[in-house]
Design a protein around this nucleic acid. Sequence first.
DNA 1: AGGGTGACTGCTA
DNA 2: GTAGCAGCCACCC
Length: 107
Amino acid sequence: MSKTTAFQQRVYDAVSQIPAGKVTTYKALADSINCGSAQAVGQALKRNPNAPEVPCHRVINSQLNIGGYLGETQGASLEKKRQLLAEEGVEFDVGGRLIDGSRVALP
DNA sequence: AGGGTGACTGCTA
DNA sequence: GTAGCAGCCACCC
């Protein structure tokens, strides 16, 4: 068993609450868990012990830009994340930017 | 126990 | 529009 902390549990819970076809920003997520730092949220997702259980691919940054996936900031993993989002109806451009900002589910 | 890092954000040049 | 700097919280070595 991984040593998941309460903070990470909150992050995973909040992320798993994101409906399909929608995405959320690290800032909104951090605010949702009452955390003043989105970087801490990213840290939890980067070290996420349950990647397939948590739709971490539905989390993007404030600039509507894709963050990363399974610790890969660049590479094929990013393309896979983009593909997953495209399957849910969220389309991204070649630069990894969200095309339809309305897909962002703000709390 | 301490320091450095990071899937971030916001402002300024 | 891009580029650089500082601030923030939690985790890892």
